[in-house]
Design a binder for these strands. Structure first.
Lengths: 205, 205
DNA sequence: ATGCTTGTTGGACGATCGTACAACAAGGCG
DNA sequence: CGCCTTGTTGTACGATCGTCCAACAAGCAT
């Protein structure tokens, strides 16, 4: 079909970091489209426009690629939330509200995004290294939330528990919002979460 | 190895319902042990002590078996929670507390139990029938919670939202408790959830 | 005891999986 | 311009997957 140029390059070399990132993004797209069951080496290679061998060349296996994809996507989500917090100005409570509101925005509460989480969760129980990665990213996320809560006047000795509670409520709402988007709306989820924040913050005032 | 009896039965016939249940229980054990990735037709057949062909004979495929397993396990969990509620006596608040406390008991907040949920969740997005099943079981669970909340004096027009909130908080805590059991304890999770119930119930009193 | 129903077996089948490796070529360097 | 490094290809391999179906036998009915 294609008229071959005198010397059309069959492929292009890429910086290892860029190629690695491209494979991660392709993995995320495949997970979003086909779910964890459809995320095979070949499907990801086709999605990235490379040969299957490259996946093995950059990652020790599918699990390592899924772990790297989770790390990447989780980082992107955290960055989106941080941006929403920063854009909320300097009022501590407004920043906290922005955090939970952004957590249910279409870009975050996305069923296709859930697929990455599920694929990662399915590895947590069996693989200690994956479990350690999960613990690390969870504690990082909780630390950011503890800071936001502290700015709102939550006592230091209550921050840990409050952050666990808020994370659980937001994650639970997020999960259900992804699994059955028609059950309740993102606005309702935000209202529920913000009302819960009221009870945490006004408690010791 | 085995000295064959004059007529040792090579297999035993079973009531279709009993065999079906045995396959479901075998599926749950395989999911708990090997995760969603290891739940193959053959592995489940070995676990159940039957030949691989039987799985196809009773279920249209692996997905149908996973869906049936989720339904069965979810029903068992609901029954356990209902029993805990009943054993709590007649005081409405004590019944509600028993519900959340039992939700984090070792038998429920079990990493191996999470595997069944993850395997089921991984099918929700792609398969409309699975999504419908999830919606149905979620709304059933929420209805029971609404009744418990109503007995505690939550106004009818607030019951839906309160039940969504409690479900999300409990599920979020349960999920994290399963994923990293060392992060916080079941007692802490129960305390967080019960404290949240305080804010919902004492509100309009 | 004998036949019949049907639950059950067990292997065949093609598809797809992850992995590995030798050959190839793109692109920078001398 | 031609060599060299190495990112990339493409395929072969064995394992395992889900599905299917003809043959078998367990246990009830007669």
């Amino acid at each position: 079909m294609k008229a071959p140029s005198p010397h059309q390059p069959a492929f292009r070399r890429t910086h290892p970091d860029a190629r690695r990132l491209a494979l991660i993004e392709a993995c995320a797209r495949v997970l979003a489209r086909a779910g964890a069951a459809g995320a095979s080496v070949r499907a990801i290679a086709v999605e990235a426009g490379v040969s299957p061998g490259l996946v093995s060349h950059y990652f020790s296996g599918i699990e390592a690629l899924v772990a790297a994809t989770y790390e990447q996507v989780e980082g992107a989500v955290a960055a989106t939330l941080d941006r929403a917090v920063d854009e909320a100005g300097h009022d501590p409570r407004a920043r906290l509200d922005a955090f939970v509101t952004a957590s249910f925005a279409p870009a975050i509460a996305d069923p296709q995004l859930l697929a990455t989480w599920i694929a990662f969760w399915s590895l947590v129980t069996a693989r200690p290294a994956i479990a350690a990665q999960h613990d690390e990213q969870y504690s990082g996320s909780r630390a950011r939330l503890e800071a936001l809560l502290g700015d709102c006047g939550v006592a230091p000795n209550e921050q840990r528990r409050a952050a666990i509670a808020v994370t659980a409520l937001v994650d639970g709402l997020w999960l259900e919002l992804c699994l059955s988007p028609g059950c309740f709306s993102a606005e309702e989820a935000g209202d529920i979460a913000r009302r819960f924040l009221d009870t945490l913050i006004s408690k010791d005032r």
